[in-house]
Design a protein around this nucleic acid. Structure first.
Length: 490
RNA sequence: CGGGGCGUGGCGCAGCCCGGUAGCGCGCCUGCUUUGGGAGCAGGAGGUCGCCGGUUCGAAUCCGGCCGCCCCGACCA
């Protein structure tokens, strides 16, 4: 590579992961900084990925009995203040509307940081009988949290998400819903994002403000920091009590409903980037790629161009018929090489090159965004066969990305006894991402470990993620009563 | 909120120390030649030097104040 190519390259991940992330997000045109502090503009390529995420999740929510609805952006201040832990958790980052219509408002409105309060206030209005339950609603919305420090996709002042809010007649049913959603999130992250998370319960200090219990999906990024990628909360009757969400049971008693809330956000796009990206750019898993196959025609003269251009159209159409999202890059002012770099940076899973030589042979050149060691980067394939095999090729790539991510996670996971804070810190400094250890359940220990190592308890792992033998030693002291997973987190 | 850095054509930067013509690369426009890994040549467009004030004959440059952004930390479901 010449000097030019170097200059246009990204900072390598190994040199400065944070700089790499910022550069890749902007250069792949996923998002850009906006004139509003801490708020980003999501550009078409990034928004296309989000739209595909939305579609997949929305289908899963619908398939499990949920419906979409929409609640207001503005919430009366008094609503937020009603649940004590909730207000303590969110007050510092609220944006407040005090004036409207040229006058000061009698009661300020907050721009929703999350919608539990207004939604359960409405549920209270709609529910009288146990026959009105459960209510299983979701909304796709924007929310605002005035974070002190923001990062594109990972923590922005305004972000897009979905928030599910349900109300149930029994505690068991609400708990079941909470776990069902956690499972849906996990499936989505594995099957669509190729990002395999750990799942489990949050410790008391990490749980959602106002929840009884929080569950989370925690994914490991390439810099071995954990990213909380989705949360599902069992709210108990906390909000129901504050908003008068009661119902009459079959037995004729008045009871408080049991609530759950759960969400994933545009943060997932950041997680996707940090899970699969390389020093060339983003790598988008085929199932989420707005364009799965980019066809690049290559031709010199107008005569050649006419031929390759027609072939490109033919291939794009055939791929479309085969259910593959394909497009042709027919810009003539850019050289083929420039297009290769651009689409690789954006992470299009497969590129098809069609030049005069290929057309002459009835072939196309197929290039995968990532190749296994030893595998040919570019392969000439007969045109019809390339089209026919494309879906399988994309599926294989999807599977390989998941396998690779899972291997990275396992390679960066420490299981076994950790008997001191120093040992825990040393492991993390050596590049371990997830450290399993015992924990007494004492918040003071958790705090001490955080102080010393910057690591927090990401999850109290679900059964599947627990070690074969429960650790006896406790990283921060005391007697181990459960297994936990520590990591430094975003 | 603490520490650090940066504000100069669309983007990335130099110029500032030592005051006097705003400059470079990329990008953009036009034309021709090109196109299998970031095209070449020629011509061209584009800048209230973050804002306010001060010093000076004269300020991108010196002085004071302010604002904004980025990074690290603290904080944060």
């Amino acid at each position: 590579m010449g000097r030019k190519a170097q200059k246009k390259g990204l900072t390598p991940r190994s040199e400065d992961f944070s700089a790499w992330y910022n550069e890749v997000v902007q250069q792949a045109e996923l998002a850009d900084y906006s004139p509003v502090r801490g708020s980003m503009v999501i550009r078409p390529w990034g928004y296309g990925i989000w739209e595909n995420m939305q579609r997949a999740l929305d289908d899963m929510f619908k398939a499990s009995g949920h419906q979409n609805a929409y609640f207001p952006l503005l919430i009366p201040m008094s609503f937020i203040e009603r649940e004590k832990e909730h207000v303590e958790g969110f007050k510092p980052e609220l944006a407040v509307v005090t004036h409207a219509g040229g006058k000061e408002l009698e009661e300020p409105y907050v721009v929703r940081p999350t919608s539990e309060t207004i939604i359960y206030a409405m549920y209270a209005k709609w529910v009288q009988s146990y026959r009105d339950l459960p209510i299983l609603l979701n909304q796709w919305a924007n929310v605002m949290r005035w974070e002190r420090r923001t990062r594109l996709f990972l923590r922005t002042a305004e972000f897009l998400w979905q928030e599910g809010h349900t109300a149930h007649a029994t505690e068991a049913e609400a708990e079941e819903e909470t776990l069902k959603i956690l499972g849906i999130y996990r499936s989505f992250m594995e099957d669509w994002m190729a990002m395999p998370p750990l799942t489990g319960r949050k410790s008391e200090s990490e749980k959602f403000a106002g929840a009884v219990r929080s569950y989370a999906c925690e994914a490991l990024m390439q810099d071995n920091k954990a990213l909380q990628a989705g949360t599902s909360h069992m709210l108990g009757q906390n909000f129901a009590r504050q908003f008068g969400l009661t119902f009459q049971s079959r037995e004729g008693r008045e009871e408080y409903a049991w609530n759950t809330s759960w969400g994933v956000s545009t943060r997932l796009v950041g997680g996707l980037v940090m899970t699969h990206g390389d020093d060339v750019g983003v790598v988008v898993p085929p199932k989420l790629a707005p364009t799965q196959v980019m066809v690049v025609p290559i031709g010199r003269s107008d005569e050649q161009w006419a031929v390759v251009s027609e072939a490109a159209d033919r291939v794009v159409a055939a791929l479309g018929d085969a259910g593959v999202r394909a497009a042709a890059d027919k810009r003539r002012h850019l050289s083929p090489g420039a297009k290769f770099f651009e689409w690789e940076r954006k992470g299009v899973p497969v590129r098809v090159e069609i030049g005069p030589r290929d057309v002459g042979r009835g072939e196309v050149v197929v290039v995968r965004r990532v190749t296994a060691p030893g595998e040919d980067r570019k392969v000439g394939v007969e045109e019809g066969r390339a089209v026919a095999e494309m879906s399988a090729r994309l599926e294989a790539l999807q599977g390989e990305l998941l396998d690779a991510a899972r291997s990275r996670r396992e390679a960066a996971t420490h299981r076994g006894e950790v008997s001191s804070v120093e040992e825990l810190g040393a492991l993390l400094d050596e590049g371990v991402g997830f450290v399993h250890s015992g924990w007494s359940g004492d918040p003071a220990v958790e705090e001490r470990v955080k102080e010393a190592t910057k690591a927090t308890i990401r999850v109290i792992p679900g059964e599947e993620f627990r070690s074969a033998t429960t650790p006896v030693h406790c990283a921060g002291g005391g007697k181990a009563r459960m297994e936990v997973v520590w990591a430094r987190a975003y």
